[in-house]
Amino acid sequence: MRRTCVRILIAVPVVALLLSASSGAAQGPARQEYVARLEKICRPGSEATQRAVGGTRADVRAERLRLAATKVAKAKTIFSHTVAAIAVVPRPDADRTTLTRWFTALGRETVALERTADALRREDIPSFQHRWADFIHEGNKANNVVVSFGFNYCDFKPSRFV
């Protein structure tokens, strides 16, 4: 009985989200409304990322690379979940092309973060240096696509990772 209740509780918001996504697809929200909605989704992920990667810089400096890998991998999981959650939000009609480019850039950022964690796990320092630079670069590129949207929590902020 209790398990059923939990399932229903999980299912209701998911169905509501899918319904809102399909109903909004025809018209699309205004940009301001869209930004507000995404910021609400990104905020907990952004705060959780900061908590997850706390001390990573010191770990890298002390060459505790496997420990750093665990933290970066956790950040990647949070990041992927956030991207998946914001991807289903109906997009403003006028911004569809820009947002498609943004989501493509976010996909590349996710891959770069995964490769960074992988390089740390393998304790492959040259690869880590390269992947980390890629991750920063991809993050900046993603930001530049949506600079006019004025995101805060959905923006890539390298300071959250170092």
Partner: peptide
């Protein structure tokens, strides 16, 4: 950097533009 590292992206600078009455834009 630690001995085995040769290059790493690290914070170089941060700017905060404070507009009146708003917004404040910060870029690291």
């Amino acid at each position: 950097l630690p001995p085995r590292f040769h290059s790493l992206s690290l914070p170089l600078a941060r700017i905060r533009y404070e507009f009146a009455p708003s917004p404040t834009v910060s870029i690291p």
